[in-house]
């Protein structure tokens, strides 16, 4: 009896969940599989094979992959160095490296747009050094640059957390038993931080794959990612059915990539906090 009463506490959320989580998914599926007149069609979803859409999807996958790899390469050694620091200063130093995450996402894009612009700081610096100008604004390179900047803390934190959890005893025991630094790294540190790496990859790859703001603002309309195609379908062409169809494809891609990653990492439960 008491148990049933307690279950009722979830009632308001259940209603909210049906109304604002499940229903929207149903609506987007409805639009994805119907024409403007309401009859059933596969065309919206299969239009992903149109060369424009396919090109955008492949470019998104490519940029997201590059961004994730760069973040991983930068973060792993960083996490190791942070973890090896003296405990007294460690908390503060980690704080320093995570802090940019709390600066508004748009402002971080703004900062890079300004730095990379033609008469911006980087180019005038290169100019005074007598080096050639770096003309990367409005190219995929600028987009990747900014994505790495945006998402780097999301990779650093889970890896660092996983590393901080490794008991010093484990490593000492291995050393006592005669393991060298390289063996310790491959046999202990790497496997034990794998869950952190997996959640880091998910937290970087998915937003990078689906973002449209970065490519829109730093690509100058020349870098078309799948997010941009979807955004334009809704906001400029008002073609909701097409937009929903492509969103559905994106949804599938995200779910599949998450499932793939999660099957690699055994728990993956290394949250940001």
């Amino acid at each position: 009896m008491r148990n049933l009463k307690r279950q009722l506490l979830a009632g308001p959320y259940l209603i909210w969940m049906i109304g604002f989580i499940l229903l929207p998914v149903a609506v987007i599926l409805y639009y994805a599989f119907t024409t403007t007149s309401g009859s059933f069609t596969f065309l919206n979803v299969s239009s992903i094979t149109f060369s424009v859409h396919l090109k955008a999807l492949l470019l998104s996958l490519k940029l997201a992959l590059i961004c994730t790899i760069i973040c991983l390469i930068l973060s792993y050694p960083l996490a190791m160095i942070l973890n090896g620091m003296k405990t007294k200063s460690q908390g503060f130093v980690v704080f320093i490296f995570i802090l940019p995450m709390w600066m508004n996402f748009m402002l971080r894009i703004l900062a890079w747009k300004m730095l990379l612009s033609n008469n911006g700081v980087i180019n005038s610096l290169l100019g005074t050094l007598g080096l050639p100008k770096l003309d990367i604004l409005n190219t995929p390179t600028a987009v990747v640059f900014c994505m790495v900047y945006d998402f780097l803390p999301f990779m650093i934190l889970p890896i660092y957390n996983a590393m901080a959890r490794i008991q010093a005893d484990t490593i000492e025991a291995a050393r006592d038993l005669g393991a060298g630094t390289i063996t310790i790294f491959f046999k202990i540190i790497l496997p034990l931080t794998m869950s952190g790496v997996v959640s880091g990859i998910i937290m970087v790859f998915v937003p990078a794959l689906t973002s449209f703001a970065v490519s829109d603002l730093l690509g100058g309309g020349k870098v078309l990612l799948i997010g941009n195609v979807i955004e334009q379908a809704f906001m400029q062409e008002y073609n909701w059915n097409l937009g929903s169809g492509l969103s559905f494809v994106l949804m599938i891609f995200v779910i599949v990539s998450m499932a793939l990653m999660n099957s690699r990492g055994d728990e993956g439960g290394t949250g940001v906090w």
Binding site: P24, G227, S244, M251, V254
Partner: peptide, 14 residues
């Protein structure tokens, strides 16, 4: 799990 853009769009449609 859903990408932000999909969450946003699905709610807008509703």
């Amino acid at each position: 799990l859903n990408a932000d853009i999909v969450t946003g769009i699905s709610m807008m449609l509703l």
